[in-house]
């Protein structure tokens, strides 16, 4: 066999890796550009600020934006304290052992549950058993179960990355355990925790299966969390799936993509800002 010149083989490998990386980015850009070309022409202030008319054939998407915000708010309201509390317990209040293994296995499994199954669970518990019907509250609670694993894992990782020294110094200064956590550990872990939460928002913005089962798909402007509501993603799904209006579907999709971009960028910026503040 012919032996390749090392410089040449180096070049081939480099080009190959370049192509692989390039295609990854390429796929992302293709999706975004395609959606934007189809969707951006639909966007206008009226599109954002009026409610859907005639099942979404005309009018705007205001009600779905509001429902999305409600749903995320409710989900985070429950998932953040629960997730952060679990992470603090796992990292600061217990030793590695059978119990932590079970908890970790539990959260990992929760992360692995298909969202449609979670939706079914939410439907059975919140919608039927608790009698809340299809409502933003049922949807938000179910969604929070979906976000928990992400929040727990990212919080845990960032708490663990806080140098052990800080805890020792704090103890040596007479700071109790809880104050050490709230005044020393959590501030230092904040960038990671916030990033985890913001990224979990991005995930819930795109979720549909869970929400159709639990929050329903009412197009009315939600006036309380006990009413049904349709999120952006669900609206998009129904518009496209039922063939109601493809232009409107693309317009909604463009808003979704923009929203997720904004969330990701703001997560990045928050992290940068907090890291500067605390280091």
């Amino acid at each position: 066999m012919m032996r390749l010149n090392p410089i040449l083989s180096q070049k081939i490998i480099k080009t190959l890796l370049w192509i692989l990386t390039g295609s990854t980015i390429g796929i992302l850009f293709f999706i975004i550009i395609y959606i934007f070309i189809k969707g951006l022409p639909q966007l206008s202030w009226t599109f954002l600020s009026t409610n859907p008319v005639d099942m979404g054939r005309s009018g705007g998407i205001l009600a779905t934006i509001v429902s999305t915000v409600y749903l995320i708010g409710i989900a985070l309201f429950f998932a953040t304290p629960l997730g952060l509390g679990t992470a603090i317990y796992l990292t600061e209040y217990t030793r590695e052992g059978l119990i932590t293994k079970i908890i970790r296995f539990g959260t990992e499994s929760l992360a692995g549950i298909p969202s449609i199954i979670l939706g079914l669970f939410g439907f059975a518990i919140f919608v039927i058993a608790f009698g809340w019907g299809w409502s933003l509250l049922s949807g938000g609670l179910t969604l929070s179960a979906m976000l928990l694993p992400t929040i727990i894992r990212t919080s845990e990782e960032s708490i663990l990355s806080v140098p052990q020294e800080y805890r020792e110094v704090a103890f040596s200064l007479g700071v109790g355990k809880w104050k050490t956590i709230t005044r020393v550990v959590l501030p230092a872990a904040l960038p990671g925790i916030v990033t985890g939460i913001v990224l979990s928002i991005a995930r819930s913005v795109g979720e549909t299966a869970v929400i159709i089962f639990t929050a329903g798909s009412s197009l009315r402007f939600p006036s309380s969390i006990f009413e049904s509501g349709r999120t952006l993603a669900v609206h998009f799904y129904i518009l496209a799936r039922e063939g109601i209006s493809m232009p409107m579907a693309y317009g909604t999709a463009a808003i979704l993509v923009l929203l997720i971009l904004i969330i990701n960028i703001s997560a990045y910026m928050t992290m940068r800002f907090l890291m500067k503040r605390y280091s």
């Binding site: 800080y166 110094v169 103890f171 040596s172 200064l173 700071v175 109790g176 280091s279």
Partner: peptide, 19 residues
């Protein structure tokens, strides 16, 4: 213990100011 550690301070091997 809090009073004790207020009275008895400790300096560590690696300088460790908080961020």
């Amino acid at each position: 213990l809090i009073q004790l550690r207020k009275e008895v301070g400790m300096v560590f091997q690696r300088p460790n100011p908080f961020p």
